[in-house]
């Protein structure tokens, strides 16, 4: 089954947060939503979760008991222990006693939380708390997992562990949609959606998006057009919209380059002064 949204528009007063957005979220895959601050990532996920009322368009999501949701920076009750969090969320989905333990124990084991069952969620490190939130969201084996920037502010080791859990969830057939600001994470997803200003700018498999990037990228210490360049470490990447002029070395673009180029291209099309 494919979940997602079709021609979704969401307005908050006079501000249009999402404009005619269509995103497919197929089962057994990770769909990454990328974009800058205010791009509409969280609004899209909240609309998918049923927390925001669309002004127009369709939302395809499973029943509420087949939905897992991990909001930003939360996902657990800080004054409850890990075990009490599990008992509460399990109870809400009708899981108690032995069936709950059967389901929760392996999840907590994989999350590295088996030894922290008696610790208050509020006393866990950021990474551990996010893993607890993820564990709670997948406790009832949902068909659709909605994760809002689950790895933001999480240490690299916890990020790897979280991704292992996401991969396992997907391998079990669930559809996972996650907002992220990390492009290296987005590249691991089966498909990527780039949102800019509430619109979908790019959508597709990461390799396809990178392959379809117009023009070329060159690495330079002194860009010829600052408006088309961005800093990557000590050097600049510069987009050459017309391709490679003779004598200029180019590099293979990555997803970050591709997304930046898409945004630059969008701006120039809006301004009407560039291709």
């Amino acid at each position: 089954m494919t979940f997602g949204v079709e021609n979704l528009t969401v307005r908050f007063g006079s501000v249009t947060a999402l404009r005619d957005v269509t995103v497919d979220i197929p089962a057994g895959r990770v769909t990454a939503i990328v974009g800058g601050d205010g791009a509409g990532k969280t609004t899209l996920l909240r609309a998918l979760a049923g927390l925001v009322e669309p002004d127009s368009g369709n939302v395809r999501r499973p029943d509420v008991d087949q939905l897992g949701y991990l909001p930003t920076g939360a996902g657990s009750w800080k004054d409850l222990t890990v075990e009490e969090n599990v008992a509460f969320v399990g109870g809400a989905y009708g899981l108690t006693g032995a069936p709950l333990a059967e389901r929760a124990d392996p999840i907590l084991e994989r999350a590295g939380l088996a030894g922290a069952k008696d610790r208050l969620a509020g006393r866990l490190s950021g990474g551990m708390r996010t893993k607890l939130g993820f564990s709670l969201a997948m406790l009832h084996t949902p068909d659709l997992m909605i994760l809002d920037e689950p790895t933001t502010g999480v240490d690299p080791v916890s990020r790897i562990e979280l991704w292992r859990m996401i991969s396992e969830t997907v391998a079990n057939g669930a559809a996972v949609v996650m907002a992220t600001t990390y492009m290296d994470e987005a590249e691991r997803a089966a498909s990527v959606v780039l949102l800019v200003g509430g619109r979908v700018l790019l959508s597709g498999r990461p390799d396809d998006l990178i392959g379809a990037m117009p023009g070329a990228i060159t690495v330079t210490e002194s860009p010829t057009d600052r408006s088309l360049a961005w800093r990557v470490g000590p050097v600049f990447h510069e987009w050459l919209p017309s391709g490679t002029p003779g004598g200029v070395d180019t590099v293979q673009p990555d997803l970050e380059d591709t997304c930046i180029v898409a945004e630059l291209q969008s701006r120039s099309l809006t301004a009407g002064d560039r291709p």
Binding site: R46, A49, D65, A92
Partner: peptide, 13 residues
């Protein structure tokens, strides 16, 4: 404040 109200809203309660 802790964002868990939204979580309650998407649970089958």
């Amino acid at each position: 404040e802790h964002g868990t109200l939204e979580q309650l809203a998407v649970m089958p309660l």
